[in-house]
């Protein structure tokens, strides 16, 4: 009993809990396996999402998370993107509506 308690204490401290670690790793592995998406593709998707988001808000890249997660055999894309700053107008060119050539601006 004492040994168990000592073990428990040490595994919390030193091992950083290999049980929890196994579980965390598996959560990621299974999400990727189930989505049938390789890490390179996930990376590409992540960058494209960020590029779109960056047109509107400034995101803290160090704190953000974009991951596949699953529960009950359902996979979801979970994004947590802490916003540093809102932008007053979208920066990118293609976001401006093109003005049709035949617009009539006559005031009279």
């Amino acid at each position: 009993m004492m040994n168990d308690l000592i073990d428990m204490f040490f595994s919390w401290n030193t091992n950083k809990n290999s049980r929890e670690k196994a579980k965390r790793r598996l959560q990621l592995i299974l999400a990727h396996d189930r989505a049938n998406m390789n890490p390179a593709m996930l990376h590409l998707m992540r960058e494209e999402i960020l590029a779109v988001v960056a047109r509107y808000v400034e995101v803290n890249r160090d704190e953000m998370e974009i991951e596949l997660e699953n529960s009950e055999r359902m996979t979801a894309l979970i994004a947590n993107l802490p916003i540093v700053k809102f932008k007053s107008s979208p920066l990118s060119e293609e976001n401006h509506q093109p003005i049709p050539a035949d617009i009539n601006l006559d005031l009279t």
Binding site: D4, D7, M8, S11, W12, N15, N17, S18, R19, E20, A22, K23, L26, Q27, L30, S71, E72, R73
Partner: peptide, 21 residues
């Protein structure tokens, strides 16, 4: 069980939660 108790092995509940069958 003794390894689960000392957090060195995933528990039955952990595995069930992951596999969901």
């Amino acid at each position: 069980p003794e390894m689960v108790q000392t957090n060195k092995m995933m528990s039955v509940e952990d595995v069930l939660e992951l596999l969901a069958v």
